[in-house]
Structures are given as C-alpha cells and as structure tokens.
Design a protein around this nucleic acid. Structure first.
Lengths: 186, 186
DNA sequence: ACCTGAACACCGTTCAAGT
DNA sequence: ACCTGAACACCGTTCAAGT
C-alpha cells in the first residue's frame, strides 16, 4: 500500500489503465504483444516498461487480485466445509483460474524455478499448506507432504484443453492427486 | 521409411544437417531462432520451413530418435526388472529427457491438446500403457488407470529446475505419483 | 518525476527468382 | 524438385527528448 501511494497521480492512473487493458488483452490472446498493450492503454512503450519491466511482471500484476482472492478463499472455505472437501473445492478453483489465465501457469512455474521465489507464489504455497494442515488435523491426509509438491502436480492440470475430454481428464488426474495425499485408500 | 527415401539426395542431406545443428542449438538455447538455425545449417530460411513448417515440427524431428528409443526402452526394461521398478526407472528416464530437451514438454502438451494427437505422443502413451499393464498383471498398481493421465502428471516434473532442490522435489513428487497409482499403501 | 515514441536489433514466415 | 535470401510485418526493449 505504501508503495502504491508514492506514485504520482498521473503515474497511478496510467498503471491502473495498463492493468485494465492488459487484463482484457491477455484474456483475448494470451500472448498479446507488449507494444499492442501499450497502444491500447494509450501510453508509450517506455511507460509500460517503467511499471512492468517484463511480460511476467505484467501478468503477475494483472492476476494479483485473483490470486489474492484465491489465497483468501483458502481460509473461508474451511468455515463452510470439512477440510478435505474444502481442499478439493479450492483445487477446482485454482485449476479454473489457471486455465482461464494461462499466464499464471508460466509465472508460477518460472517464479518457482528462480530463487527470488516471488511472494505471490509463497502466498499460494501458504494457501495450499493451510488447507493441507486442516486436512491433516482431522486425519484425512497424510502428514509431512510438501504443499509446493502438491502445487507442482496441480500445475500440470491447467494446461489441459477446456474441451469435454480435457475436463474429464482434469477430474481423473485430480482424483489421482488426492489419492496420493489421502491417508486411507478408497 | 518410404517417405524419407522419396527425398532428393540434396534435400535429404539438408534435412539431416538441419536436424544436427538444431539438436545442438536447441540444447544450448531452448529458444534459438529459426533464422539462426537455418544460418547455422547453411540453408535458406525457406528450406528450413520446407522441411519443418513450424518450430514444434522441428523440435519433434530433433527428438524423434530419443523418443523412439524411450518407447523401445519400455519393452526392454521389463526383461531386466520386475514391473514396478521397471516403470519407475522408465519414468526417471522420461523426466531426464524432458528436462534436457524442454522442447518436448511443449510439444507433448500441445500435441496432447489438439485432436490430431500426434503419433509420437500416441507411442509415448503406449509405452506408459505397456509398463502399467505389466505392473497391473502382478498386482502392483491398480487397474483401470489411464496412461495419458499418468503422463500428464509426469509432465509437470520436467519443468522443475535442475538444481539440487529441484531434483529433490522431482523425487518427492514422483513418489507421490506412484503412491497414487500403487495398489497398496506403503 | 514521469511520459513519449522513434529507433535498434531482432523475430517468424513468405515467395519471387534461381538452379 | 528443391533451394536461396531479400522482404514483410512484426516483436521486446531502450533511451534521448520532452513536460
């Protein structure tokens, strides 16, 4: 918050507008060019790069709110449902988000493979960890499983096509993943 | 074989040279440009595109031999080892190949998401299926698991970095995957 | 302090002209 | 039948010049 307040009002407006058009542009075409996004936002290319020094930074900026919401959800689902169904529901939402915004997949993956280990990813791992902890406490999943490992397996799912078969496969693989972590065999 | 024989001798020589330099170039830099590969091969850009109409086609051409070898291996490992260790060894090899040649990952994924369902991928799924069948027949893994589903989970692994932690994570996730398919819990 | 937009060095891909 | 390589329409990124 303090960082964002420091921006001059015109800079702030530009930043917001860039984020708005980038959200649309990237949804329509996952690899819309940086130049085209700058043009759509009505700013010079340099301004785009000032705010978001790379394509990945831009994608992260765009989806930060969605990611934050997902992290929040990891707490609230636990109020409504037993841990395991809550975890499963959260995974469905994650996959849904990842599928729609393919950009996240790449960002998560490359963030995961660099050691700066972006705070966004850390929050995500934290969310998975919280859900797993809840499941562990009622004995639904085994102890000592690394949340980041589960996230890696989940990340393979949002590359599947949104076709009928793709969705069916997503469910099957998700079942397999849950079988890997569950305490008892079905 | 019949397809390859039809090529004029100079065309054939060009094709082979392109494949050779592309193998090196892509190993050194996974997104070496098409133009640079053509230049390295000493051919015009048009020639490169005649033989391999897309980057993906080129990657597939380069790694076809490795993939074929891996498919073959799915038969031979079963002669040396019990099914489950054979399967596990084969998975290690697959991950190793995928890690080194990141291009394959993309190819597999996008091939998987189009319905032309490339024969290379089909062969790969067939190899996984053969190994799983052998494991099923001795009761080591459950019946009715889709080999393509297992391949999807495996594909998440070759994006992990080749660092120490990356390799450790690979082992952990692979353990989880095997737990998902195994007949009995450890 | 921030923005613009021309400019640089590329990129994938095509296609007339050659042999 | 196959090849060449200039050309096209882009691309990401930078940086002088502006306000």
């Amino acid at each position: 918050m303090s960082e964002e307040e420091k921006l001059r009002t015109d800079a702030r407006a530009n930043r917001d507008r860039i984020l708005d058009v980038a959200r649309e542009a990237l949804a329509a075409d996952e690899n819309a060019s940086m130049n085209s996004i700058a043009k759509l936002a009505g700013v010079g290319a340099g301004t785009l790069y000032r705010h978001f020094p790379s394509r990945e930074a831009l994608a992260l900026g765009v989806y930060r709110k969605e990611i934050d919401a997902l992290v929040q959800l990891s707490g609230t689902v636990l109020l409504d449902k037993p841990p395991l169904p809550a975890f499963r529901l959260w995974c469905d939402r994650l996959i849904q988000l990842g599928r729609v915004k393919q950009g996240i997949a790449t960002s998560l993956h490359s963030a995961m493979s660099t050691k700066d280990f972006d705070e966004t990813l850390a929050a995500m791992v934290g969310a998975v960890g919280r859900l797993m902890q809840a499941c562990e406490s009622v004995g639904d999943i085994r102890q000592g499983i690394n949340p980041a490992d589960v996230l890696v397996m989940l990340s393979s799912l949002w590359r599947l096509p949104p076709t009928h078969e793709g969705q069916a496969q997503t469910r099957r693989v998700l079942d397999l993943i849950f079988r890997a972590v569950e305490a008892k065999s079905a």
